[in-house]
Nucleic acid binder design. Structure first.
Lengths: 151, 151
DNA sequence: TTTAATTCGGATAAATTTATCCGAATTAAA
DNA sequence: TTTAATTCGGATAAATTTATCCGAATTAAA
């Protein structure tokens, strides 16, 4: 207790998002990058990042190439089809879309928890953001030096 | 991994919010309620709830009365001064207001992470909601049968 | 004064999330 | 063909969050 989090994403999700953005940026330049490089560039623990990259491959966010000179990449034309929400979904599942804000087993508009409608507004904004933010946009911001991945 | 959460609040926070609402509702009727009753009514583990109630007392959200016939209550006039955000803050601290969405140590408008501006919009909505939702409003919704705490 | 019901506070355990380790499988290059 | 670099996948460990236990302190009522 006493220093809990209200961060938007889990660590797994943070790493997943950062990794996807980095791989996308590199893929736009025709580069395939390996785990070691990814972990270094996004400043994340290597072994844990490996798990997350696997998860992203399973969920068709990333492609992987096995063996020496292997690594991760994203088909270029897919980069602007993938939305931030797809990455979050691949790692955290659909708990944003479901799940009561106060943990009630049942909670809906007809029999809502006390914060149901309040949270709905915020969640709607979140869903919207996740749906309308493309990986291309994020990778491009990084590429042109507008944003940073590693500080 | 593989079934992470993207729920808005931690369990501790969920219990804290539910407990505060229930105690407020009861206080509006002049009742002082003990841990056992609170835990039962909000469907939460008793011992853990005890810790959270203590935390809320320390942070002046709730008042406690020790000894037999003791319990928890909120001074009536304070119920509409307390906002949802105060409860969240008491338990989870100010991590909503600070903290980079991608976990970067430094992240600000001048050198933002790739999702900085995206998250700011959502966070602003969240902050707004937490600031403008009073405990009275939540307790009252429960009282008049508009909302439910235990399903 | 004694008893019973309660909050408080510390220690500890269980569950979940985060992280590491290591060997198998794969593949490019020597 | 062999070697070295890599992804993959399972087992396990560390850290954090969630949860329990128990005795001390407090207080209303018998």
């Amino acid at each position: 207790m006493w220093f809990l989090k209200l961060s938007m994403f889990s660590k797994a999700c943070e790493y997943g998002i950062k990794a996807s953005i980095y791989v996308a940026q590199q893929s736009l330049q025709g580069n395939c990058v390996n785990l070691k490089t990814v972990a270094k560039e996004i400043n994340s623990p290597e072994a844990f990042t490996a798990k997350i990259l696997q998860q992203l491959v399973k969920n068709k966010i990333l492609d992987s190439i096995k063996g020496a000179k292997g690594g991760f990449l994203i088909e270029e034309k897919r980069i602007n089809q993938i939305q931030l929400g797809d990455i979050v979904y691949a790692i955290d599942g659909d708990s944003i879309y479901t799940g009561c804000g106060l943990g009630l087993k049942e909670c809906n508009a007809r029999k809502p928890c006390p914060v149901h409608h309040k949270i709905l507004i915020v969640r709607k904004e979140l869903k919207n953001m996740l749906k309308n933010t493309s990986l291309f946009e994020l990778a491009n911001g990084l590429e042109i030096g507008l944003t940073y991945l590693n500080r």
